[in-house]
Amino acid sequence: MSPAVGKSGGPGSWKRAVKDGAVALHARDWADAKWSSIFARDSAYAADSADPEAIAAANLRGRGTEGEIQGPMMKPAVWTWEVPTYFWFGGMAAGASFVAFACDLSGDHDSAVLARRVALGALMPCPPLLVADLGRPERFHHMLRIFKPRSPMSMGSWCLSLFGGIAFSAVVSDLLERPRLARFLGALSVPVGAYLGSYTGVLLASTAVPVWKQSARFLGPIFVSTATLTGAGAVRLTVSSHQTKTALARVEDAAVTAELVLSAINRRRLGSLAVEGPWFSRAQWLVRGGLAARLCRLNPLASVCFMGAALCYRFGWVRAGHASATDDAAVASTARLHITQH
């Protein structure tokens, strides 16, 4: 199993015998690629000419015919528990930044200070989780090697760094008793947090995995709802102001409603592509538990239940991707969807 030279998967230790020397025994300019008799002038291999339109029509005909599936069609993501957990913490940080801004707007600056600390606290586990998920953790800094707007993961890495910087500066400003600077930084973290809380959905939607890909316009909004839910829940468990607590309970209820409604619409759109799983049913039971706790006026328990439900939703979505990518029929039919649209 071990390679003859070098390390497994690494470049072989290869050196030219003569510096800049040509490789012996080969014809230059790929002339050696044409050794075969099928390139001979009298070969019966190919016709003398082809009608491009006939070829294009044959291609569409060939691809348009449905066949028995012999997979595997594609590969599932290799991400383990760190990624959904990161989604949860990152969402919490983004949600807490929304709450901090709302607290400031409503004049409850003490709660805003706490919310900013919650945002920073929720952000702290994110970098270690992401680094742990890498195949080569020691190369984590390569994430900030380039700025690539078309790659959600590149933008997410930059966004996480920026949000971390802002959240940290805001908390430091609070500690140094510079409230105006802290409020400014808190407001600044809202647009950055908006991307932090939603890009994870975009990241999944921009893959070839059927259940994620076909949820493209819904994954971001669903993840934002979850983020707001966890942010509100985490702040609600830490603040003492009664007014803010009741306001946060309203935010939780609205976020749960949005999450449930968006998920239901999306599931209906997906039809047979929708993936159920143990994590989704755990999430549903926790939501029901949270609502029961709310009706029984056990509000802290409700927050805990909702936050647990959010974590289960994150795991559910990531695991659904695995199930969907390994479902060869789902992958094949999603690809067919596009060809029939032509």
């Binding site: 348009g64 015919t65 066949g67 028995e68 599936i69 069609m73 992958v331 094949a332 060809i339």
Partner: peptide, 10 residues
């Protein structure tokens, strides 16, 4: 058909 080879139709 492409699926026989494990290839997506598009």
């Amino acid at each position: 058909p492409p699926e026989r080879y494990g290839l997506p139709a598009d």
